[in-house]
Design a protein around this nucleic acid. Structure first.
Lengths: 156, 156
DNA sequence: CCCGATTACCTCGCTCAGCGAGATAATCGA
DNA sequence: TCGATTATCTCGCTGAGCGAGGTAATCGGG
């Protein structure tokens, strides 16, 4: 049980750290999350489009456009029209964004890796199982747990 | 290394789940975080004041007042003047807020506890060490990563 | 090959969360 | 008692994100 609270504390702390880092670099939390999503996609060799990014962050198209505008204005990414399907706008991350990601995650990752050095294979596996399980548990618990049963969600 | 990414994925997923749940209940992410902070404080037998809550969420006084206004209007908490120091406004959480917290965290906690049932003591300890380490690692990594050190603000 | 449907993104107007500055009220210290 | 400090609130403003609707490109049936 205390592990649950500990996990929540970790997510809260990471959240605050992210928000603080974002503010310090003239970004908003959403901007930072967008950069992370972009870097993730880049690392996975995936081409991320504007719409896809918005969907991943839970923004609608208008908000996504504004987000991409901001990031482009700051030089973190460039809009690139897909030559195959010229309706699509691919997002190309700039070196600047990569550097920012490094600056934010670098120390955190380094510390975590140092910590993990002290873990045996079985312990690492335990951590992995735990995180995987929580991730999957967080998939769709909200659907079942809506506090307002009578209220019509999907206000669209 | 993959554990790091896994952790990030977990926090992202929990974040999105929270935002979705909040929106579904007519709240904003900040409101939900405020409720969580309030419930945490209540569970710890701590009396949370308006200013303290704002500080914990990274809001300034104006934003905090607006936040408390919203939550009070929704009936999630009540303002209670501290009788000892009548400048202070204590925040009393309502049953409604508790129920909301249960609705959100209940299933998540249940699933996590079920998962943890399959863990041995050593494994749980590994998870605990990992989470504790990450929490501490997230304390102040941003300071080192930017040219702009934050000024101390002694959060009591 | 054309035309309607669909897809992907953008524009416009708006709401409201959160900020900075400053006001107000209560407490504390000399 | 009076100024300094603390805790909160008020006011005006900026801007992130939403809903609605527009535009350009692609797809699919006749």
């Amino acid at each position: 049980m205390d592990l649950v609270h500990l996990l929540r504390e970790v997510t809260l702390r990471l959240d605050l750290a992210g928000a603080e880092f974002a503010a310090r670099n003239g970004l908003h939390p959403t901007d930072l999350r967008a950069l992370i999503a972009l870097l993730d996609a880049a690392r996975a060799g995936e081409e991320l489009t504007a719409g896809r990014l918005g969907g991943r962050l839970g923004l609608n198209s208008a908000g996504t456009t504004a987000l991409v505008d901001r990031l482009e204005r700051l030089g973190h990414l460039r809009r690139v029209r897909d030559t195959r399907d010229r309706r699509r706008v691919l997002l190309a991350v700039d070196e600047r964004a990569v550097a920012l990601g490094q600056a934010f995650f670098g120390p955190l990752i380094a510390r975590t890796l140092t910590l993990l050095d002290t873990f045996g294979p079985g312990e690492r596996d335990a951590v992995r199982r735990f995180l995987t399980g929580v991730r999957d548990a967080a998939q769709a618990p909200a659907e079942a747990a809506t506090g307002t049963p009578a209220e019509a969600d999907t206000p669209s």
